[in-house]
Design a protein around this nucleic acid. Structure first.
Lengths: 207, 207
DNA sequence: GGATTTATGGAGCGATGACACCAAAAAAAG
DNA sequence: CTTTTTTTGGTGTCATCGCTCCATAAATCC
């Protein structure tokens, strides 16, 4: 019988929100991106979001609910390049070349935390956070699935040698991207990542 | 003027330790490996180590000191295969082929947590743990350095085309291994990792 | 205007985190 | 034996965690 509070920030009757929901969400994203879920404390969150504890729960429900929203935001904003590149209208090899070089660039942007928020998140965590870990793992798997789909198209069009193991190739590029994300977190430069990307393309199947 | 308590478990005068230090260390390793530093609570630790809080501090000093010991243990025990393979007396390509396939095997052993404890650790963490994060990052860098050394030897012996960018190649295989470690954590099978390893060897420089 | 609805500020809560203290226990040294 | 040294069990501490409650403020609806 809970009336299911509306958290989406719609305008209506009562007192209006005194902060910008999207801004707060982005601030939270940066912090989660940098420190991970467990490494980000509640107090630090409301501090960078510039809201009070009550406003926080009123607007976002809970730390975990906020994190879910942040992931969605990340996927559509900061991680949007991924699906964009996969959707490019060129041959399959060029798509993956662009994918790896774009990763090198995106993982080392000065205005954002290094690496990919999803790739490096919650590979180890306390048992309380197992649900979150599984969610992130499934996001990673989905990303790989999207690559596999594009590769499959390439196979059908003849961009790849028939008999190519699509799943394996997707897994390879998935591994490479995740590894690059970790390297970026460890401080690797863009040039370094670009070199890795270039070498990674040498593994592209020969005709 | 602190007398610097001896924590190494030597035998001497007083009451003897009622537990096996190495066993406790290995139990701690498994837990840290599985859950990471911040994800592992003190109470869980002393529980799997089967010792009391006092014994814990008496024998290991602190949670962080224990973690450092665990890392050393990991490097010499569970991660020993890495330097072993790098030290193999064969041509450079075979060494790296063995390295990637060994990683696929070691990352998916049924008797241990999946992936590499160092590769997947503390890429995101709270500011309190920045020192630990930097330590782990430097361990990862060192591992890559060891690969670079072996590649350089290969270059000098003629196993690699002259002009090969050694640092970049080491970075590539470093990325690949880290990515494989994350995949393993996400539940990838050994077969899958072996395929990734095989594809990764296609990136090996052509003469 | 008053009633209603929603957001805010501030104080505080229970649980858990890592750790400290101390008296008792168990060994070697004399 | 006594003394000395070290480990152990049990309890307590202090900070932080994520979260809740409540009175008040600010908007809309009638």
């Amino acid at each position: 019988m809970t009336p299911k509070k509306d958290l989406s920030g719609r305008r209506g009757r009562g007192r209006p929100q005194s902060f910008d929901r999207k801004e707060a969400l982005c601030a939270a994203m940066r912090l989660f991106w940098d420190r991970g879920y467990e490494g980000t404390s509640f107090d630090d969150l409301i501090s960078v979001m510039k809201i009070s504890a009550s406003s926080f729960y009123n607007a976002f429900g809970s730390k975990e609910a906020l994190y879910h929203e942040v992931i969605e935001t990340y996927m559509s904003v900061a991680g949007g390049w991924f699906l964009d590149v996969l959707g490019e209208d060129t041959d399959t090899r060029t798509v993956f070349q662009d994918l790896t070089t774009a990763a090198a660039v995106e993982f080392t942007r000065a205005d954002r935390p290094a690496g990919c928020m999803i790739s490096v998140a919650a590979t180890q965590c306390s048992p309380n956070q197992n649900r979150l870990r599984d969610l992130l793992a499934s996001q990673r798997t989905q990303a790989e699935g999207a690559m596999a789909v594009r590769l499959q198209q390439g196979l059908e069009v003849g961009d790849l040698p028939s008999g190519t193991d699509i799943e394996a190739l997707a897994a390879f590029y998935g591994s490479l991207l995740r590894g690059m994300a970790v390297q970026a977190r460890d401080g690797a430069s863009q040039e370094r990542l670009l070199k890795i990307a270039r070498i990674g393309m040498n593994a592209w199947p020969k005709a």
